[in-house]
Amino acid sequence: MRLLVPAAAAAALLALSGCSDPEPGSPLPTGAPAETSTTAPPPAPTATATPTDDAPTPEPGPAPTLPPEATTDDAAGAEAFVRYWYDSLNYAIRTGDTASVREASLLPECIECEALASSVESAYDAGGSLVGGRADVVEAIAPTPDGSGAVLLSVVVQQQPLQRLDSAGDVVSDDMGEGVDESSQSVVIGRNDTGDGWLMVGLGQ
């Protein structure tokens, strides 16, 4: 299943597949010490750091910011905006903060946008979280805007499997799937009310 679906996006997000941690590397080989012709004791070992399970969790980083090139009323601006929108969605999935993706969407008209944002918020309610699910834009192709204020783009997206965890860190939804999923999406964006930027209007397969 994919993150982007025309109507049932809320249910789809929670049913997406989860990813597993990579296998740890093999331990260094050990063997008997080489024979020596001296009876001198080996040098004292040097103190080394001991790994700990209390290492801090990496910070999620700042929310993405809209780049100037994603506001221009041309094909390049449309393509840059779509990439920014997916960056905002990825940030929401990673942190539960949907402010950026909501601000970049025409709500409530964009039903898919609302469903996706609400699904993320629901997953993070009561301390839950989402792991994985990153959607990377491989290609975004936009025609030259025709002056109507709307542009239909063809977008290729690669999405990682996703897990939903509860507040205790236990897996609530975990469909391992077949790894990274690549799909073609149709995306519609439109100029905002002030005409100085874009908004996501609709998306689907």
Rank of each mutant, 00 (worst) to 15 (best):
C113Q: 06
A40C: 11
A12W: 02
G25Y: 05
P56M: 07
V138E: 13
D73R: 02
C19D: 15
A140W: 00
L199C: 04
I141G: 00
G25P: 11
D97Q: 15
L152H: 08
G61R: 06
L28S: 14
D87G: 02
W85Y: 08
G18Y: 10
T50K: 09
V201L: 13
L199G: 01
V151E: 02
G128T: 03
A150H: 12
V187F: 12
Q163L: 11
L16T: 11
R164M: 12
L14Q: 13
G190Y: 05
D97A: 14
V187Y: 07
T57Q: 08
A40Q: 15
S184L: 12
L116C: 13
P60S: 06
T50L: 14
G204Y: 10
V188S: 15
R164T: 14
P27K: 04
A12N: 07
E109Q: 13
P43D: 05
T38K: 07
V137M: 09
A76P: 00
G197C: 03
S173E: 12
A92M: 10
P62Q: 02
A168P: 00
S88C: 14
I111T: 10
S17R: 12
G133Q: 04
D136A: 02
N192T: 08
V156A: 14
P42C: 00
A117L: 12
P56W: 10
L3M: 10
S17T: 04
A11Q: 10
S183M: 07
P60V: 09
C110N: 11
A11M: 01
E69Y: 00
P64T: 05
S17Y: 01
D181F: 12
T30D: 13
W85C: 00
A140K: 01
E121N: 11
D193S: 13
A150K: 12
E109T: 11
T48L: 08
V156I: 15
T95F: 15
L106D: 11
A115L: 08
D74A: 05
P27A: 08
E79D: 08
S129R: 10
D54C: 10
V5M: 05
T46F: 02
S184A: 14
